[in-house]
């Protein structure tokens, strides 16, 4: 799956080199143009090439959603693992409950309003995704905690302990490899969730800053309809659906049972 993700990202990078225009270039004489040889998916309302923006936006959304998912899963693994072993369990579970009860959208709006203004769009979007990652550890942490608790009293762990296996080896050789599939499943679930979260922020006009494209701000073109007679506007929806669907398919196909 990681390979597929990398290939997808690489294709998006390579395709960008073949595009007729940079994603931010405004062809002001051709706003809202339909598909043509020059602009295969037409232009947006400022005359920017939609295909270039879609491909560049794919890079932004995929890369940063993956990074945010990795961050939250890393935090979840650390905290969930510790709690699962019975260390600071009450504190960590309480913190997870607190994070789950936070209205994350309002929290993100508040944090965004407090951020310094004069940052480039790339820095701004990175901060947004880091925040998403930092706030999203609670749900996977609970799953990891439950799995570690179950694993730590499993037969193979008892046997390993009985043979005098040291603590670090128990963790490194027995617990982690068995908990890893669960963590991976959480990662595959979290990536599309973050892609969708960015889209939500984008729809509110608070996601990735212009002129940087993302799936979120590309989807804003669909607000209020206007698809009739302009089916090419659905391209970001199809791409988003394909990516989210692919992640779900991977989770379903792979056996993560402990």
């Amino acid at each position: 799956m990681i390979r597929a993700l990398a290939i997808g990202f690489l294709i998006a990078v390579l395709l960008a080199a073949l595009l007729p225009a940079r994603y931010e270039k405004q062809f002001r004489d051709s706003p809202n143009a339909g598909p043509s040889r020059q602009f295969p998916l037409g232009t947006d309302d400022l005359g920017r090439d939609r295909l270039s923006r879609l491909i560049y936006g794919t890079r932004v959304s995929l890369l940063l959603a993956t990074a945010a998912a990795l961050l939250s899963c890393a935090v979840a693994a650390a905290l969930g693992g510790i709690a699962g072993l019975g260390i600071a369990d009450t504190v960590i579970v309480g913190a997870a409950d607190l994070f789950l009860s936070l209205p994350w959208l309002f929290l993100l709006l508040m944090v965004r309003a407090c951020l310094p203004l004069n940052v480039s769009p790339m820095v701004s979007v990175t901060i947004t995704f880091l925040l998403l990652g930092a706030l999203g550890w609670a749900a996977p942490a609970r799953v990891v905690r439950a799995a570690v608790r179950k694993l730590s009293v499993s037969d193979f762990m008892l046997q390993a302990r009985a043979t005098g296996c040291p603590q670090w080896r128990l963790l490194w050789r027995h617990l982690m490899p068995n908990a890893m599939p669960i963590l991976l499943a959480q990662l595959w679930i979290t990536i599309p969730a973050y892609v969708l979260a960015e889209s939500t922020l984008g729809m509110l006009g608070l996601g990735v800053m212009e002129p940087l494209p993302s799936w979120g701000n590309l989807l804003r073109e669909l607000e209020g309809g206007g698809i009739a007679g302009h089916p090419w506007l659905l391209a970001p929806v199809l791409l988003l659906a394909a990516v989210v669907g692919s992640f779900q398919a991977v989770v379903e196909r792979e056996d993560y049972s402990v």
Partner: peptide, 30 residues
């Protein structure tokens, strides 16, 4: 945030000023 007309104007101003070598960061706030 949410005022698409102003956001578009800001993006066009951003491109116009880029030609002078000025970098503009657009921030939409509630």
């Amino acid at each position: 945030a949410g005022n698409k007309t102003r956001e578009r104007m800001a993006v066009m101003i951003q491109e116009d000023l880029t030609k002078l070598g000025i970098k503009i960061n657009i921030v939409t706030l509630d």
